[in-house]
Design a binder for these strands. Structure first.
Length: 851
RNA sequence: GGGCGCUUAGCUCAGUUGGCUAGAGCAUCUCGUUUACACCGAGAGGGUCGGGGGUUCGAGUCCCUCAGCGCCCACCA
């Protein structure tokens, strides 16, 4: 079969993927060590971005590599309903049509978003196929699939029964635009310029006043105390007295509490328990009333004086400040930057609001996870991420899992309509009301935080502890993910996994860095610097993007997308294509399938290189050094095979060995360039209809070290000849030698590769002797031409002197000889010997031509 | 206020437990239409590894310190 000159990926990729799917090549093998990866489910609300390409490719390389090793590999794909994320994407869409979520009931919204997601799922499944991901589509799991939902309910029920989940009225982070509460982790804090207002609160007994400092004067309307530090001599005597709250007719107690920082502001703090997390804690300790002055819409509530009701927080702030100033309560104003929490989606300032929600008591879960991590039961790449996760877990607060949105898994809890404190667990979430005995219950309208259900992903996707898949593949071998979901997802999978199954959910965690925009900044839709993988695949091919995106990338280090890397990989694909084209051409349509046997020195040399390459690739991939593994194959194929072996073999092609070499390359490169290698495999005349994707690595063939060394000399001769001919700008020279077996054996190869007129054996003669080889040979270059080569020789001599001096001083250092490992010292001695030999022959040539 | 990462050739970056004369791709320069490949071949130039100090026989690699860039966490009213 005649291959075209240039590899055109788009001509083959779709057919190859279809072939794999048809052949069920990605089902786990019946035998072999289990190796399992569950893919992080992408959000089912948009096209896949380049970051997902990286995730998927790293997982696919691992999966394909383990298939090569003969393991039983499960790579499980899925999709995430991504509750709040998806709803906010959908809301943006509604906004474009001039609508909002308020135009629909929750049920209508849920149904519409379901359809919206259904469209997108088809989309990104196709994209994953284009990336060449070898996942088992028969195991595809969606976070809203009944078994996953059932699993989430079982977890909730277990927590309910064991009192790990509780209903509490607490301050929650509330986005007044989206109308929902968030977990702490979903709040994005930003440093912003702000002001510190100093406000005078007069003492009721008329004995003076106390000044407080605040960044949020509007919350004054909800103050229920003023706190001072009991150790603070300035104020301790005032504890127990009352102040009059400006702009209202309320009176507040002055209380003492250790939390007050004597150094900050005035040392006296206004306490607004319903709108500040610290104040909330103080309020609970001192049993203070909690007055909600800000509504879920972000407006001042009916609890405040009529003049302020219905104002936005910002307008309320301005009016409060103006009124304070007018009435003489405002002492002074200072500029003060401070950290403000925003909704990570829409940027709205997060309001801490008092709400009744479901919380998970994280203490016991986190403690166990910390123990597990400390014990080293889960291996992290890079290791530093483990410490980072431990620190996060140590500071973990209780987890608010209620979300006031339509799109999500309904919380299976019902409230007694007559007794608000009576909550029961029931999974009949399809009903709004249920009746048990003579009691009537109403379903909690809220849904779970997405991470609550995705925390169970590793075992939920495997069908739970009773299933065969679970028994075979749990704990997962690898969890590969980006650093941004280490806290929200990885930590919760560990905690929930241990809680529900009693085992760790995965044995290894690989954290990749982000793919940044080309200028190194963060990719962002609004800036418009997002790289879409599909057009890149269209242009360069899927394999080129796969290799380009992992090339030169270290774990957990952010790096910009670099098109040049993709081009490099595209060129590599074409190189490999042409190596195959050449070899297949040489072999013809009906090649004999004889056993590969090394005969020429080049044969032995390439076999030793192949063996080294295979060992290095295995070692690198076992430790998830993807970039190094790729680099190893790249240079083996390009430098060793294409530039040396293929050229050398043209003198006398060893056909069976060429065939063996091609097969070996295809196997080794397959995890990195699956489409290309399979495409070539399908063209092999001797392979019938077998599939590369399910092949296994073979044991490398042995080689003779003497022959390997001989080819090393051939390379020295070729390289130096090329250098001299290039430097002297001469061509058509002849290389002479007398009685050197390795030159005699490789004469044709040397002639071709060094572009010589001839390689000729003579009794004796003269010319320019080669210096980098231990054998005696020379180029027929005349005295006058060679003169201009003198300065090259002189320069080399200088360099050699420096090298020798360095090596000698190293060896004359007693401490070095005594302390360094013996092989290192031996190596140095060897180097010195070689450097000496080279210096000698350089000197000889220099003298001969300068005389 | 803590924590983490980065700083290596003109550009983008590798460099595993300290051990060859520090590497790659791209870019640059000189040659080259050799029937696998111009998405190519041959050759070349280019770095005191951010600054300073230390440990060591030996430091790009380990420790301290300074500077710059970036990220994450945190309830400083």
């Amino acid at each position: 079969m005649k291959l075209p000159k240039v590899y055109e990926p788009s001509d083959y990729e779709n057919d190859i993927y279809a072939l794999w799917e048809r052949s069920e090549a990605f089902r786990p093998a019946k035998s072999g060590t289990p190796y399992s990866i569950v893919m992080p489910p992408p959000n089912a609300n948009a096209n896949l971005h380049i970051g997902y390409e990286l995730t998927a490719v790293l997982e696919d390389i691992s999966a394909r590599y383990h298939r090569l090793k003969g393991d039983s590999v499960l790579l499980l794909p899925g999709a995430d309903h991504a509750g709040f994320e998806t709803q906010s994407v959908y809301e943006k869409r509604l906004a474009k049509e001039g609508k909002s979520r308020f135009d629909f009931s929750r049920e209508e919204l849920y149904r519409d978003i379901w359809d919206f997601v259904a469209e997108n799922k088809v989309n990104f499944e196709a994209q994953i196929r284009r990336m060449g991901i070898s996942c088992d589509w028969s195991k595809f799991t969606y976070t809203l699939d009944a078994p996953v939902v059932t699993r989430a309910y079982a977890t909730f029920k277990k927590m309910w029964d064991e009192s790990l989940v509780y209903r509490g009225e607490r301050l929650v982070n509330f986005c007044t635009f989206h109308g929902t509460g968030f977990a702490d982790i979903e709040v994005a804090f930003k440093d912003e310029p702000g002001k510190l207002w100093y406000i005078r609160y007069p003492l009721v007994d008329g004995s003076g006043d106390i000044t407080v400092a605040t960044t949020r004067p509007e919350t004054l309307l909800g103050d229920t105390a003023v706190a001072v530090n009991p150790q603070d001599e300035r104020y301790s005597a005032l504890i127990g007295k009352t102040v009059k709250l400006p702009l209202t007719n309320r009176e507040l107690p002055i209380i003492g509490d250790d939390f007050v920082d004597v150094q900050f502001g005035t040392g006296a703090v206004k306490i607004t328990p319903a709108h500040d997390p610290n104040d909330f804690e103080v309020g609970k300790r001192h049993d203070l009333p909690m007055i909600t002055v800000i509504t879920t819409e972000g407006l001042l509530s009916h609890e405040v004086a009529e003049a302020y009701q219905g104002l936005t927080v910002e307008a309320g702030r301005q009016k409060v400040v103006a009124d304070l100033e007018e009435q003489g309560y405002l002492v002074k104003t200072e500029d003060r930057p401070h950290s403000v929490g925003h909704c990570y989606k829409c940027g709205t300032i997060i309001q801490p609001l008092l709400r009744e929600q479901w919380f998970v008591n994280m203490q016991p879960l986190a403690a166990k996870a910390i123990d597990t991590l400390r014990a080293g039961s889960i291996h992290f790449y890079p290791d530093s991420k483990k410490e980072q996760l431990i620190r996060y877990l140590e500071g973990l607060h209780d987890w608010n899992i209620s979300r006031q949105i339509a799109w999500g898994i309904p919380i299976p809890a019902f409230q007694n309509v007559d007794e608000p404190d009576d909550w029961i667990y029931d999974d009949r979430v399809g009903e709004e009301f249920i009746t048990i005995g003579d009691k009537h219950y109403r379903r909690d309208p809220d849904v779970f935080d997405t991470w609550f259900s995705s925390g169970s992903w590793p075992y939920a996707t495997l069908g739970g502890p009773e299933s065969d898949d679970f028994k075979q593949f749990y704990p997962l071998s690898l969890m590969e993910t980006g650093g941004e979901i280490l806290y929200p997802w990885v930590s919760r999978m560990i905690m929930l996994g241990q809680y529900v199954t009693g085992e760790i959910p995965f044995k290894e965690v690989y954290v990749h860095g982000y793919v940044m925009a080309e200028d190194g900044s963060k990719m962002s839709k609004s800036i418009g610097n997002v790289v879409d993988p599909i057009p890149v695949i269209d242009q360069y091919g899927s394999d080129a993007l796969r290799m380009g995106i992992i090339s030169g990338r270290a774990p957990a280090v952010n790096r910009g997308y670099d098109q040049r890397r993709v081009e490099e990989a595209r060129n590599f694909c074409n190189k490999l294509w042409n190596v195959a084209r050449y070899i297949e051409d040489i072999l013809g349509d009906n090649p004999e399938r004889s056993k590969p046997v090394a005969s020429a020195a080049a044969d032995h040399w390439i076999l030793s290189k192949l063996q080294r390459t295979q060992e290095e690739v295995i070692q690198n991939l076992d430790e998830y050094r993807f970039s190094e593994a790729y680099d190893t194959i790249y240079h083996f194929v390009w430098d060793d095979v294409a530039d040396w072996y293929v050229e050398a073999s043209k003198a006398a092609p060893n056909k069976p060995l060429l065939a063996h070499l091609l097969e070996s390359i295809l196997l080794l490169a397959h995890p990195f360039a699956p489409f290309l290698t399979e495409t070539i495999w399908q063209t092999l005349a001797w392979e019938g209809d077998s599939l590369l994707a399910v092949r296994q690595l073979a044991k490398p063939l042995a080689s003779d070290p003497k022959q390997v060394a001989a080819f090393g000399e051939v390379q020295n001769i070729v390289t130096e000849s090329r250098f001299i001919l290039n430097a002297l700008k001469v061509s058509g020279s002849t290389l002479y030698y007398s009685d050197v077996q390795l030159i005699k054996d490789n004469a044709e190869t040397i002639k071709r590769m060094a572009r010589l007129q001839a390689v000729t054996e003579v009794e004796d003669g003269t010319g320019l002797y080669l210096t980098t080889t231990s054998v005696r040979c020379w180029l027929d270059i005349d005295q006058s031409t060679a003169q201009s080569y003198l300065k090259e020789i002189a320069a080399k001599q200088e360099r050699q002197k420096a090298v020798i001096a360095q090596l000698e001083s190293r060896l004359s250092n007693e401490n070095y000889v005594r302390n360094a490992p013996r092989e290192i010292v031996e190596q140095t001695k060897q180097q010195l010997t070689e450097a000496g030999e080279l210096a000698t022959s350089l000197q000889r040539e220099f003298e001969r031509f300068s005389s």
